[in-house]
């Protein structure tokens, strides 16, 4: 499907405008002797300078996916498939082939791929000053830089993200910062090496609504100034609509629908996407109307049957089809993919 261009230096290659491409990515987590299939074969493609939203309920595997990209899943996680990533020098690597905490992967982390987290309050150690922890990212990736250089760069970054009095803030401890300020500091730190890819794992979930808006604006501004791609993980469809160009909807470790924001919001194909959109409160809706809730709970991803993951909760479940085999991925319109038996050409 994709136009493969031969690259002399590496076995892997990616088209010009593609930064990251995951194929058949599977992540298993071993817990108490059981194996959880957290991510069950997803394909994902992220273009340069685009923001891709990864949406789903808690436990659908979106966080595991994002951590797998940057290689910081715990050691009880194992993965197969491939994650191709184009480095700054144009070479393409399969990230899954790298040793998780090896030198090569570490050289990419914080430098070419960065990540910000859901709870900024816990992303810094309480024992060292913000400046100390932020400077590290410069010192790791620029061995030639002195502490003074690092401090200058960090203060510059702090100004960029709108932290007032950065010289004073530099020597303060995390507990002296508010949540919003810490998220700004985290963003400043993670972007100080100008990475090509920023993974944002629900960066605003733990923040107040007004702060949320500020942080989102900041991210948009920085994206246009620094030119990077953002993989935006969230369960908030409102944020997706305002931040992203394309959206992947995840359910039970699979991507069930993928397309542009317009396609997904105006023409949702998968019943799960439809349900998600219906469960959003609407400002123009009738007040008496009850908010829609999807029936049932997300199953535990252990020994899942060969079937559509959503069939137990699906209102349009077709017996004998949906509970008997995996639905294939269908391209319903250009760039709009859905994994649902409702749209297959062949009927069983």
């Amino acid at each position: 499907m994709l136009f493969q261009k031969k690259n002399e230096q590496k076995r892997y290659s990616l088209p010009d405008n593609v930064l990251l491409k995951a194929e058949d990515l599977r992540v298993n987590i071993k817990i108490d002797g059981a194996v959880l299939n957290a991510v069950r074969g997803i394909d994902l493609e992220l273009k340069s300078c685009e923001t891709l939203g990864l949406v789903g309920e808690s436990g659908c595997g979106k966080s595991v996916t994002s951590k797998e990209v940057i290689g910081i899943n715990p050691s009880n996680c194992s993965s197969t498939g491939s994650i191709l990533f184009k480095r700054k020098d144009g070479t393409v690597l399969n990230l899954l082939e790298l040793e998780r905490d090896g030198a090569e992967y570490r050289a990419i982390r914080g430098n070419e791929i960065a990540m910000i987290f859901q709870e900024p309050m816990t992303a810094f150690s309480p024992l060292y000053t913000i400046g100390n922890q932020m400077s590290e990212i410069i010192l790791i990736h620029h061995p030639e830089a002195t502490k003074k250089d690092a401090k200058e760069k960090i203060i510059e970054m702090m100004k960029l993200v709108g932290i007032a009095n950065p010289e004073i803030r530099f020597d303060q401890y995390p507990h002296e910062f508010s949540g919003g300020m810490l998220q700004r500091a985290l963003i400043a730190m993670m972007l100080s090496n100008e990475p090509d890819l920023l993974i944002a794992d629900e960066p605003t979930t733990a923040l107040d609504v007004t702060i949320q808006a500020q942080i989102l604006d900041l991210m948009k501004r920085l994206q246009s100034e620094l030119g990077m791609s953002i993989l935006f993980i969230t369960h908030d469809l409102g944020i997706v609509a305002s931040m992203c160009q394309r959206v992947a909807v995840m359910y039970l470790g699979e991507i069930v629908e993928f397309g542009s924001v317009r396609q997904i919001f105006h023409n949702p194909k998968h019943p799960y996407t439809g349900n998600l959109l219906r469960s959003l409160p609407r400002i123009d809706s009738d007040r008496e109307e009850k908010l829609y809730a999807i029936k049932g709970v997300v199953p535990v991803p252990v020994d899942l049957p060969e079937a559509c993951g959503f069939h137990e909760r699906c209102e349009q479940c077709m017996e004998g089809i949906c509970d008997k085999r995996f639905p294939p991925v269908i391209e319903v319109e250009p760039g709009h993919f859905v994994r649902c038996a409702l749209y297959g050409k062949s009927e069983g």
Binding site: K67, I70, G71, I72, D101, R106, A107, I108, R109, G110, N111, A114, M115, F117, E119, T122, A123, F124, S125, Q133, E136, I137, I140, H141, L186, M189, M190
Partner: peptide, 15 residues
């Protein structure tokens, strides 16, 4: 198992 180790790893810090 604390979050800051994740952030530190994401920075590229050695284990």
């Amino acid at each position: 198992s604390k979050n800051y180790t994740l952030a530190a790893r994401a920075k590229g810090l050695k284990m």
